[in-house]
């Protein structure tokens, strides 16, 4: 892991991997119909939360349970922590009911991160599907903060419908920039949608980047990632330059519970961000 991005909490977590820190909900923002963002601040007020783009936290709701959620805030603004998630289970349902001031437990940050430093002097293609944009947003913040260090930066985003587009106003702001190419597509359009219709992989063929000098960061449903890497490789992007963020069930985040295994990998500590050439023989298999 890169030293300039080393998380503050790593030492404490190594001593007691189950230790939680208390964070207060500052704001709960509804994103789409079934997604929302929690804005958290440490209860002790002073602490900064250092993390690297792509890492995740374990968030604990008192009396309900604990789940892994990627960090979606700006790593250069470590005073508040944002987590965007979809309301799909007991814990996320309880989270959505939290009021400002409510206290959550936070463990982390855990896992590998997007290789934003490796992207320097290269074109960067970010391919996101649905809520897969959430763990990619910190990488984009980091890149935009030092925009001149990178070549072309392209964001390809796919959602199910126009109503499912995450961070919509932010996407629109990004799309207005001269130094960022944003292409969005939806699986199913509704009246009023004038943009692309179709899967996100359809955008890869015509996106402006130099395949031989590109780093690709990909996050979305597993099936979307399988087709995305095929398209990227068809364009000529090398496997070593493609990075994916995987998702598996997790209970501990430190490699003890066994739930997150993906072939030989523990997604919690060997991932969630993997270089494609390390995953390749497993990515094409089902029910791994």
């Amino acid at each position: 892991m890169r030293t300039d991005l080393d998380p503050r909490g790593a030492e404490a977590t190594a001593l007691d991997p189950m230790a939680v820190a208390s964070y207060a909900v500052r704001r709960l923002k509804g994103e789409t119909d079934d997604t929302f963002t929690l804005e958290l601040q440490p209860v002790d007020g002073a602490a900064r939360f250092s993390f690297a783009p792509g890492q995740f936290n374990m968030l604990y709701v008192f009396g309900v349970g604990e789940i892994p959620i990627s960090i979606s805030s700006d790593p250069l603004k470590p005073k508040t922590l944002w987590h965007t998630t979809r309301e799909v289970g007991t814990v996320t349902r309880a989270m959505r009911q939290l009021k400002p001031g409510a206290v959550l437990g936070v463990r982390g940050p855990f896992g590998t991160h997007w290789p934003v430093d490796e992207c320097e002097a290269k074109d960067v293609v970010i391919v996101a599907g649905g809520i897969g944009l959430a763990p990619l947003r910190p990488a984009l913040y980091r890149i935009l903060a030092q925009r001149d260090r990178y070549g072309r930066v392209v964001l390809l985003y796919g959602a199910r419908t126009p109503a499912d587009i995450l961070y919509r106003s932010e996407l629109e702001r990004w799309r207005a920039r001269f130094d960022l190419e944003v292409y969005a597509t939806v699986d199913r359009a509704m009246s009023g949608w004038r943009g692309n219709v179709g899967v996100v992989t359809g955008l890869i063929g015509r996106a402006p980047f130099d395949a031989l000098n590109t780093v690709a960061l990909v996050c979305g449903p597993e099936v979307m990632m399988r087709f995305t890497v095929q398209e990227l490789q068809r364009r000529g992007v090398r496997a070593q330059a493609i990075h994916l963020s995987m998702e598996r069930n997790m209970k501990c985040a430190v490699g003890f519970c066994g739930h997150c295994q993906f072939g030989p990998w523990f997604v919690c500590k060997d991932g969630p961000v993997f270089r494609l050439d390390r995953l390749r023989e497993w990515l094409g298999k089902w029910e791994v």
């Binding site: 189950m18 289970g89 598996r248 069930n249 739930h259 295994q261 089902w286 029910e287």
Partner: peptide
Amino acid sequence: AQRWRKWDSCFTTEFSFIHGGSVRASPRS
């Protein structure tokens, strides 16, 4: 509240459950 850690088994469907279903849904897998 109490947090309990308990032995678990990769033979259960819950073991690999993520939103939408189990990754290893079949007994074969």
